[in-house]
């Protein structure tokens, strides 16, 4: 059965049967679609991000970057959101920038600009499980979480920070993913993700990502101020601290192309 058919089946089940009569798979998909639906209409977004890397002994190093994102407003095609990350520090990588085009199905496209060589290099798309800039975030963790990238299974209702919520599992469709399974905690009020447990290819408990201090921005769009990833195997951790979120900057696809990569400083 194709994913589209599964999706259709899911929607049919949603429309004709009460939630509690759904299969765990359909209920998981239903929640994922609601998360997606609650995160629409933000248009474009720019934020300053500080990445704090910590090793097992607590030694820290910091990177500063600007992350720009553009929402995919044309539904029904294969294209998803676009994101551009521009590095400001450490100064030896200042001006290095990274562009990614998410696809709802199939691998994402990624380009890296190296300022010393004035050269844009397209990155092999298979390599999604590798670390992003030496952090505990893999490339696939920082790319947009399109609904079609996983299959789902509802686990249970659970209170999260004294709010009603759900716990479900999702399984990456792409065999190149570094994970077999992710367990997701989401609240039932605004459908914000609060925590994800990652299980690696050997099915071992691998990493935990927590989303902290959500704040409400434009049009019911909620964003965390901090995302903390802990690697349980190495003891290392990475925090992304998001500052100065700006929405509706009227950014266009022209701000997310290879010319933009070469221009940015």
């Amino acid at each position: 059965m194709t994913k589209t058919k599964l999706l259709l089946l899911g929607m049919i089940l949603v429309s004709f049967s009460p939630l509690n009569a759904m299969t765990p798979e359909a209920k998981g998909l239903d929640i994922a679609q609601k998360i997606d639906a609650h995160d629409q209409g933000w248009g474009s977004q720019v934020a300053n991000v500080v990445m704090v890397l910590r090793n097992r002994h607590g030694q820290e190093s910091k990177r500063k970057m600007v992350i720009k994102s553009l929402e995919d407003t044309i539904k029904g095609d294969d294209m998803g959101d676009k994101a551009l990350t521009l590095f400001k520090t450490p100064k030896d990588v200042k001006g290095t920038s990274f562009l990614s085009f998410t696809h709802t199905e199939g691998p994402d496209e990624q380009w890296l600009y190296l300022p010393a060589l004035r050269r844009v290099k397209q990155i092999a798309s298979d390599n999604k499980s590798g670390p992003f800039m030496g952090s505990e975030f893999a490339f696939e963790d920082i790319s947009t979480q399109e609904v079609g990238k996983y299959t789902y299974k509802f686990l249970r209702d659970e209170f999260i920070n004294k709010e009603a919520g759900f716990v479900f599992e999702r399984y990456p469709v792409d065999k190149k993913s570094g994970y077999t399974k992710q367990v997701v905690w989401v609240d039932a009020i605004e459908y914000r993700i609060h925590k994800i447990d990652f299980y690696n290819r050997r099915n071992a408990f691998f990493k935990t990502l927590t989303y902290e201090r959500y704040a409400k921005y434009t049009k019911n769009i909620w964003r965390p101020s901090k995302m903390a990833m802990v690697n349980h195997i190495t003891g290392k951790s990475t925090e992304l601290i998001w500052n100065n979120y700006a929405f509706n900057k009227k950014l266009s696809v022209r701000d997310f192309d290879k010319n933009a990569l070469k221009r940015l400083k």
Partner: peptide
């Protein structure tokens, strides 16, 4: 030295 200035959402850049 690397001196730069950008404005208009990084659409204008002097390097």
């Amino acid at each position: 030295p690397d001196i730069s200035h950008s404005w208009d959402d990084d659409r204008m850049v002097i390097s």
